[in-house]
């Protein structure tokens, strides 16, 4: 791969001064490829867990137990009304301080890595919005549909899983789409706690090579591409979920 790119980018640099060093130096290329993986893992894990938080949270929000509902609204208020950047720092520096360290054979490592904290923090951040999004979708499912399930013997949980959630999903896919795009972009803030994702890595590259504009271009193109893939996937999903003769 790099062999193919090298001649062009080296000549570009020699002739114009545009320095895309990641495409012609093995060391920088390796850093770049590693960053792709880290950022993809970070994005996929955060998307996934934020959906889990949203689904479970929306269920808990409908709980008959008042304390559970209060806890949920506290959670949502906290994560919605504070900056995700601060949340990330809080999780890593404050909560990270309290997590036990594990013996790695002579030296000690924190049980949760900065990558782990980023996933946790971002999932809870986006999850708080997902809870609200799912709740709106759930409220759009008519009470009569719920009663039909109930009269067929469905428990509250079974009705949620098999009837309410699949219908609610369809209603909330557009707003879910927005929130997940937002989450994808917010993953770059993991930079603050030194997760070697794309922004963090390219920042190192431009510090070493003094090529900020070039690396900025790479960053923009990279995220535009990722968002395009996510939006494409969400639209496909939306089309696949479309029910003939409904909505």
């Amino acid at each position: 791969m790099l062999d193919l790119l090298t001649p062009f980018f080296r000549r570009l640099y020699d002739e114009t001064g545009w320095n895309f060093v990641i495409f012609y130096e093995q060391y920088e290329w390796d850093r770049f490829v590693a960053a792709i993986w880290v950022s993809l893992e970070l994005i996929v894990a955060s998307l996934f867990f934020s959906l889990v938080v949203g689904i479970v949270g929306a269920w808990l929000q409908g709980s008959p137990i008042r304390a559970v509902r209060l806890f949920m609204s506290g959670y949502i208020q906290f994560f919605r009304n504070t900056p995700p950047y601060v949340q990330l720092l809080f999780f890593f520096f404050v909560l990270g301080n309290f997590t036990p360290k594990v013996d790695m054979g002579g030296y000690y490592e924190p049980m949760i890595t900065s990558f782990g904290w980023a996933v946790i923090s971002l999932s809870f951040f986006a999850g708080a919005f997902n809870v609200e999004i799912f709740r709106a979708g759930i409220e759009a499912v008519p009470e009569s549909t719920r009663e039909a399930a109930e009269s067929l013997g469905y428990s509250r949980l079974m009705a949620y899983v098999y009837v309410i959630l699949p219908l609610a999903f369809r209603v909330c896919l557009p707003s879910l789409n927005n929130n997940l795009v937002n989450l994808l972009k917010t993953t770059t803030q993991a930079y603050a706690i030194a997760v070697p994702e794309m922004l963090y890595t390219l920042n190192q590259v431009w510090s070493d090579n003094v090529n900020v504009p070039e690396m900025m271009i790479i960053l923009f193109v990279y995220y535009v591409g990722l968002v395009a893939v996510l939006v494409w996937g969400m639209h496909r999903w939306e089309r696949k979920m479309k029910i003939p003769g409904y909505g």
């Binding site: 008519p142 009569s144 399930a149 009269s151 013997g153 428990s155 219908l167």
Partner: peptide, 21 residues
């Protein structure tokens, strides 16, 4: 035991209330 009851009793509503999906 609501499940026990609902196994014995079927109900049909004015608005059908089928599962649209």
């Amino acid at each position: 035991d609501k499940l026990e009851l609902r196994k014995k009793v079927g109900m049909v509503f004015q608005q059908y209330n089928l599962f649209p999906h």
